[in-house]
């Protein structure tokens, strides 16, 4: 495979020491109304994310990890507390500001890929690069995820793993500061899932994007710089991995 062109090679290990936090979250709570019930999804979360980090957020369903991801990604605003991205205050941002934030800084990877079925792999990526300021070449982004030979395939012609890699390429191609992945392997089989994790690891290593994966699969935690455990809407613990395991060595 040809080396990805736009990504400057970086020293893979050790991770850079935490500098200034890119994301700064403090005292965040989120209360939903679900019908007649009030759901306290987050009950005071403090968390910082640092440049170049690979973070895995672990927790059972209902622990609040998805809500946390939504708030980080600018899909939702907290009921109370503070959310800062660099010098942007996202705490009370409106729809337009959040859209701009997502457009400029965030890459999303969904559990079910959410590709546009009517667009080819290349076009799915181009859809996002066209609205980005300094995007990669869409073909280069696809080569980065080892799909250089599938550029003109429609989603229906790709396997689940391939679709998820297109989704990653789409998320990465605009050079976001952060890649937020919601159960990226949830719909994939074991081998394919590991392949996708390898791609995420490579993007983190080669492009320097912050990668945050939320999952209930504890085995993934091994490849992270830091593991955030969530439970009942609170951060139950943050653990720094002394030695990161490469995705190929993970098993579940």
């Amino acid at each position: 495979m040809p080396p990805p062109q736009p990504a400057a090679p970086r020293t893979p290990d050790p991770p850079p020491p935490p500098a200034a936090a890119v994301f700064h979250i403090q005292g965040v709570t989120k209360v939903y109304r679900m019908g007649d019930v009030q759901v306290h999804a987050l009950r005071g979360v403090d968390l910082d994310l640092y440049a170049g980090e690979f973070v895995v957020v672990l927790g059972p369903s209902g622990s609040g990890k998805s809500t946390l991801l939504n708030i980080l990604g600018g899909l939702d605003v907290p009921t109370s507390g503070e959310v800062h991205y660099l010098d942007h205050n996202l705490t009370a941002a409106g729809d337009a500001a959040l859209t701009r934030f997502r457009r400029e800084h965030v890459g999303f990877v969904f559990q079910f890929y959410n590709l546009i079925p009517s667009l080819t792999a290349l076009e799915n990526v181009a859809l996002v690069t066209e609205i980005a300021e300094h995007p990669m070449d869409p073909a280069a982004a696809l080569r980065l995820v080892d799909l250089g030979d599938r550029l003109n395939h429609f989603p229906a012609q790709l396997s689940g793993g391939e679709q998820q890699r297109v989704a990653i390429a789409r998320a990465v191609a605009k050079r976001p500061e952060v890649l937020l992945c919601d159960e990226p392997t949830g719909a994939l089989d074991y081998t394919t899932g590991k392949l996708v994790l390898e791609v995420l690891e490579r993007v983190n290593r080669e492009v320097g994007t912050i990668v945050a994966i939320i999952t209930h699969n504890a085995a993934i935690a091994g490849m992270a710089d830091r593991v955030v455990r969530m439970s009942s809407g609170m951060v139950a613990g943050i653990q720094r991995n002394v030695k990161k395991i490469s995705p190929s060595e993970l098993s579940w």
Partner: peptide, 14 residues
């Protein structure tokens, strides 16, 4: 609907 919502998440405006 899902496609469009995904696009919104990806940063397309309304």
């Amino acid at each position: 609907g899902n496609e469009l919502a995904s696009l919104r998440v990806l940063g397309l405006t309304r």
